[in-house]
């Protein structure tokens, strides 16, 4: 389960899917074992809530099982799952909070946003400064601080490694919108992480 998706989705995936489509629950269970980690992570990133993430996990695989015949093999099976999981996650998000703060629309842009303030070289080995748990907590806290509109794009593009086009299709956004959100998400995270990972004694400069 520690292996990355993509490396494990090897040669026999198509065979497993075909078996599952013929009603073989064991074959489908094997697909669950492969992909549940990624789907659960994605659901947590988007919903920011463990209970919602578990619901999304179940709903995603149950829906996938029920609609297996709709999977044509045009995309990777994982991408198909991701699409279902994103839809379920967004529904949870909308249901849980109906206020505008969880809108997936672009946050109000004043055009004056300083995209990069903290300029500092990182320590060459941040993993020596913190334990694995601490680093994981730092990374999660940083993602959590992003507006949902940025978070979903970042999770799909940079964590699940979908293409810009796939991300746009999954989120129902234009390609330019995905690109601008990704840039802002990456720069904001960079900024947050710099506070933890910068080399000690490094000066900060004003920028832009």
């Amino acid at each position: 389960m520690i292996q990355r998706v993509g490396q494990t989705s090897g040669f026999d995936e198509a065979a497993l899917v075909a078996q599952a489509q013929r009603g073989d629950v064991e074959a489908f269970t094997e697909l669950v074992n492969r992909y549940e980690g990624g789907i659960f992570r994605l659901a947590r990133h988007i919903t920011q809530n463990p209970e919602d993430a578990e619901d999304v996990l179940q709903e995603t695989f149950l829906k996938a099982y029920e609609h297996l015949e709709d999977f044509q093999g045009n995309s990777k099976f994982y991408t198909w799952l991701v699409r279902i999981a994103v839809n379920q996650s967004l529904m949870k998000l909308r249901k849980r909070k109906s206020d505008a703060s969880v809108s997936l629309d672009e946050p109000f842009d004043t055009g004056e946003e300083n995209l990069a303030r903290e300029i500092a070289v990182w320590d060459p080995n941040p993993e020596l400064l913190y334990s694995r748990e601490e680093i994981r907590a730092i990374l999660e806290k940083a993602v959590e601080s992003l507006p949902p509109a940025f978070r979903a794009v970042f999770a799909l593009r940079d964590i699940e490694e979908l293409s810009t086009e796939e991300t746009a299709a999954v989120l129902n956004l234009s390609v330019p919108a995905v690109k601008s959100r990704l840039l802002r998400a990456r720069l904001r995270l960079r900024e947050k992480l710099t506070r933890y990972f910068k080399r000690k004694g490094e000066d900060l400069f004003d920028y832009l």
Partner: peptide
């Protein structure tokens, strides 16, 4: 540092369910 930001997220293992 942006490149490192992306890499550190990509390098995180999956949540073990």
């Amino acid at each position: 540092t942006t490149k490192k930001t992306i890499n550190i997220y990509r390098g995180t293992e999956h949540y073990v369910v």
